[in-house]
């Protein structure tokens, strides 16, 4: 019994310790951000590895999710004779929820884990330490550009996911199942609101981008500098990002769409 209590105590202490370290780390990243204005090239290079390399995965997944939504939505809606609302169903599901959330989960798996592994290995091979000894702040040179690239990429990737998803729903609904094309778009346009739906979806994906990028760079920077430590940190990035995104999604949805 005592052992169990002790374990609980030490576990919660270490959780708080990590949380505190993570937050202090975030503050240090934020302090390092202004220096990036002079070095846009660093951010561009990271946008490539974080954003461009995730694009294929996001587009293919978005297309698939959209097509499945079109098919499933049609099967349900046709029972009520309202298959014209398919466009609305596909667009709202994607823009409000699936776009930001699924894109963030995929982002954590594709780009977040890579960021963690990269920074963790740079730490393990003393590259970060070496940089510090060359009077170069690794936070400014390595961490901050990756963090910013994550935040910029996330809303763009989520928008691509949603847009491609709507097209996927369109192909299935209009192309295969014979929903009227005009009705598909007009129903969608009349029910999807620019501010309430699209903008809130974008805000969600920006928040998810911040959280995913923060977790990824922190786990990398905080990793135990050996092979096992880096592999554990990579796993933690994916798991923690998934939890954080799903939890935040609930809170944000309640705040944004709760009063309707």
């Amino acid at each position: 019994m005592m052992g169990w209590l002790q374990r609980l105590g030490s576990t919660s202490l270490s959780v708080f310790e990590r949380l505190g370290r993570g937050n202090l780390f975030l503050l240090r990243i934020l302090a390092a951000l202004p220096s990036l204005v002079l070095r846009p090239g660093l951010v561009i290079a990271q946008l490539y590895s974080v954003g461009v390399l995730s694009m294929t995965l996001i587009v293919i997944s978005g297309l698939n999710v959209g097509m499945v939504l079109g098919l499933q939505g049609y099967n349900t809606l046709v029972d009520f004779g309202s298959e014209e609302s398919l466009g609305q169903l596909v667009a709202l599901s994607l823009v409000r929820e699936l776009g930001p959330v699924v894109a963030a989960l995929l982002f954590a798996g594709r780009a977040g884990s890579a960021l963690t592994a990269e920074i963790g290995l740079m730490k393990a091979t003393e590259q970060l330490s070496g940089m510090e000894m060359m009077a170069v702040d690794p936070l400014k040179r390595v961490v901050a550009p990756r963090f910013i690239a994550g935040i910029i990429s996330m809303p763009l990737l989520a928008a691509m996911f949603s847009a491609v998803g709507v097209l996927g729903g369109f192909f299935v609904g209009v192309g295969l199942l014979g929903v009227d094309s005009g009705a598909f778009w007009s129903q969608m346009q009349s029910k999807v609101d620019l501010y309430d739906d699209i903008l809130n979806g974008v805000i969600k994906s920006i928040v998810f981008g911040c959280v995913a990028a923060w977790i990824a760079v922190f786990e990398g920077y905080d990793a135990v500098p050996n092979t096992e430590g880096v592999s554990r940190a990579t796993t933690r990035t994916v798991v923690h990002t998934a939890f954080a995104v799903l939890g935040l999604d609930f809170i944000l949805t309640a705040l944004m769409f709760g009063d309707e």
Binding site: G51, V95, S153, V164, D197, I198
Partner: peptide, 24 residues
């Protein structure tokens, strides 16, 4: 690559705004 990425992302946002939502 980054140029294409950013352009595609913005194009997706514009499409969502113009074609999907009631912005028009």
């Amino acid at each position: 690559g980054v140029g294409v990425f950013v352009a595609a992302g913005i194009a997706a946002l514009v499409m969502l705004a113009m074609k999907v939502s009631n912005l028009a």
